[in-house]
Nucleic acid binder design. Structure first.
Lengths: 248, 248
DNA sequence: TGGAGCACCATTGTATACCGGGATTGTATG
DNA sequence: CATACAATCCCGGTATACAATGGTGCTCCA
């Protein structure tokens, strides 16, 4: 049952020992969720987390509270917190909200990219392409996420940028949940390059449209037909998940 | 120094005693902020809050963490939490974000209002008008907020609805901060009626435009000329605030 | 008289102890 | 063999104690 946290514990860069603050815990968990090392429904027991990060439950609780507020985790009274696993309706809503907000963000950025930012985005798009060519899906996801995250961080409107950051995270969750098992990668060739071209070309509405079709394509890759949580277990068995997300 | 919490304590409906959960604390604080009984910069000491609600610091801390995550309060290490007081840049960003999101929400709702919802919105608009006519600004604000909050709650896209709810709250904060002292009311006559008309008429883009001009008018009422936090103190002295927000 | 240094107090950060609820597992019975 | 019941264990909820930090006001000296 305890399962996945052991992986976290010594499997990768999380914590590795002593004295993390709640800020660091949320950041680590967010990164783990983004890179899909923490699948939807994963249990997040306070004590286990505390031991993993070398702190007591107090700080873990604070971190969990923040994660719940960000819709990264869900918490029902007297039950262990879990990584959120939104149903299909919420998934569609998340994509819809993200189309709106990321569209606006890129529209606002269009034409005013610094040289450094343009180069960074280009490098990220290139890195994604390279990783895909090599078949390194994990690195490809990381680059793709970094691309979008870069947009969020450099949003002229920081409020929208923060919202976009949360939405990107939630998108990662639902992708992990609803990606068809037979789909090797969610790579959409050239989309990021095209978007970048629009961003520097200086056509806000065109850039907005680019982002929205990009997100539409992404959503279209997902298997959103299940009538909400019914065949859920079947889907879970399809991929190699442990029982850590039993009753999600 | 301690000031404003005593007002809260026995001045109005907050707490009045025993055994509140963090949920209730968050809700009460949100309501108090909305109705501007808790001005920006107000200190929120953990012990005082705990006594007011009859709980210990643990639950207060959880509530504060959530309020901070929602940008209602700010918290710097080893210092008392305070109600947020955004600078003018952030204020503009909040309005901008709200125009985008509330515009989309009403566009989505247009044409599909239930009879009950239509009546409720009409009643709220009417209540606001009546309160304004009577010069009861507090009740007017409450009705106005309820109108927008009603939109947020009934958003077909619940994610956007939740975002809008937060934005409405933050808008209340910046209005309290930047409303010119000589302005008796932020009432925009007929705006809500017109919006409701557009909502039932079935013109999404028209409704969106209505909301956006409404919010533009509201933002235009504010005094956003100060070069960010410089004359801030002057503005604070202008209104009759106690020293509870000294170094905000 | 004014400024710098210091001590005290207010308030937060962290850990821990105790309580209570829920889930799981084992057992007995139909 | 299935199901219902019961005990146990795990885990979260709350309160409290202790440590640490920052702010305030006082005093002392120039």
């Amino acid at each position: 049952m305890s399962g996945s946290w052991q992986q976290e514990r010594h499997g990768n860069d999380i914590s590795s020992g002593s004295r993390a603050s709640d800020e660091q815990i949320v950041e680590q968990v967010r990164r783990a969720v983004l890179t899909q090392r923490l699948p939807p429904g994963t249990r997040l027991p306070e004590v286990a987390l505390g031991e993993a990060f070398g702190v007591s439950r107090s700080v873990v609780r604070k971190a969990l509270t923040r994660l719940v507020a960000n819709h990264v985790a869900v918490q029902r009274p007297n039950q262990v917190a879990r990584i959120a696993s939104p149903d299909v309706d919420e998934t569609r809503e998340i994509f819809s909200a993200r189309r709106l907000i990321e569209g606006e963000v890129v529209a606002l950025m269009t034409g005013s990219l610094t040289q450094a930012l343009r180069q960074r985005l280009a490098a990220l798009a290139e890195a994604e392409k390279a990783a895909f060519a090599e078949g390194d899906e994990e690195r490809r996801i990381e680059a793709s996420l970094a691309f979008h995250h870069c947009l969020a961080e450099h949003s002229p409107n920081r409020t929208l940028g923060a919202m976009l950051g949360d939405l990107i995270l939630r998108t990662s969750i639902v992708i992990a949940l609803y990606k068809p098992a037979d789909l090797a990668s969610c790579y959409l060739e050239g989309d990021h390059d095209d978007l970048l071209a629009q961003l520097v070309a200086g056509q806000p509405d065109a850039a907005r449209a680019r982002v929205q079709t990009h997100l539409n394509s992404l959503e279209a890759l997902l298997d959103l037909r299940t009538p909400t949580g019914a065949i859920d277990l079947g889907a879970l068995f399809g991929r190699g998940q442990s029982l850590s997300q039993a009753d999600a």
